[in-house]
């Protein structure tokens, strides 16, 4: 039985690797577009931190957060978003896959449906975010904090994917809900890249528990600034729980799934 589980994990890891390389080769076939999109995304993120630099020039502290803290927030926000887009590129397309009946393709194949659906596409723009995040990380984060940083990046990535899956799974219940799903996902992304210190009281509690957007980037920044084992355990436990909840929500919704009878070519 254990061998079976291990061989399943190995086989799915091979699937993820294969899709990553196939999608990567596809991306590199359109070099000009890829380079342009990467540069655009990099500039996009640069404009955001330029805006925050202007803001902090006027207001040097936001509830004890400085501009440096905000840059760290963007390290985890952009890196997590970038990695989740590169490896799990379909995370924000789940509702489209469901409402247009495109899940049929994945249901007929002997792989985990959710994992297969998530990894079968790569979001080209994500590379620009990843590059930006890594550039900031190299500049800002000392080498001795690398293990903690990597752990937090993995957590951020998985949380982004989990939010995408939950938002997308609404389509099982609401039908054609791409807009609502995308808006919910974008709200989560928006909250993640704002300093969590602007919130207090019940809002802050919610953002670090039930709707854990605060754990995507805010908590990693707190851990880097003032390491606390309780906070680290909290991050790992809540992130893991949230990912599990997203998987449960998807598979519960999958029981309601009906084929759209649409014919399309998957090449």
């Amino acid at each position: 039985m254990e061998d079976n589980i291990f061989s399943q994990i190995k086989s799915h890891a091979s699937l993820i690797k294969a899709y990553f390389f196939i999608n990567g080769k596809t991306v590199l076939e359109y070099k000009k577009a890829f380079i342009l999109q990467t540069i655009t995304m990099f500039l996009n993120d640069l404009i955001w931190i330029f805006f925050w630099w202007l803001f902090f020039t006027r207001f040097p502290l936001i509830n004890e957060w400085t501009y440096y803290d905000l840059l760290l927030l963007w390290v985890f926000g952009t890196t997590g978003f970038g990695l989740s887009g590169l490896i799990f590129g379909n995370k924000s397309q789940i509702s489209e896959l469901i409402s247009e009946g495109k899940l049929d393709y994945y249901l007929t194949l002997p792989k985990n449906v959710l994992l297969h659906a998530l990894t079968s596409r790569m979001n080209w723009f994500a590379f620009g975010d990843l590059l930006f995040g890594l550039t900031l990380a190299v500049i800002l984060i000392p080498i001795e904090k690398l293990p903690l940083t990597l752990l937090c990046i993995i957590s951020s990535t998985l949380l982004f994917v989990a939010f995408g899956v939950i938002a997308g799974s609404l389509a099982f219940y609401l039908g054609k809900s791409e807009r609502i799903s995308k808006n919910i996902y974008n709200i989560a992304v928006g909250f993640a890249i704002y300093p969590p210190n602007v919130y207090d009281g019940i809002t802050k509690i919610i953002l670090f528990t039930i709707i854990p957007v605060g754990l995507i980037a805010g908590m990693p920044v707190e851990l880097l600034k003032n390491f606390n084992l309780t906070n680290l355990i909290w991050l790992i436990v809540i992130s893991t729980l949230f990912v599990i909840i997203s998987i449960i929500i998807f598979y519960k919704g999958l029981k309601k799934y009906e084929s759209g009878n649409q014919i399309y070519v998957n090449a």
Partner: peptide
Amino acid sequence: IEDSRSLDFLYQK
């Protein structure tokens, strides 16, 4: 440019 999404992103910002 052959890519409208890039321009849209930059313009938005």
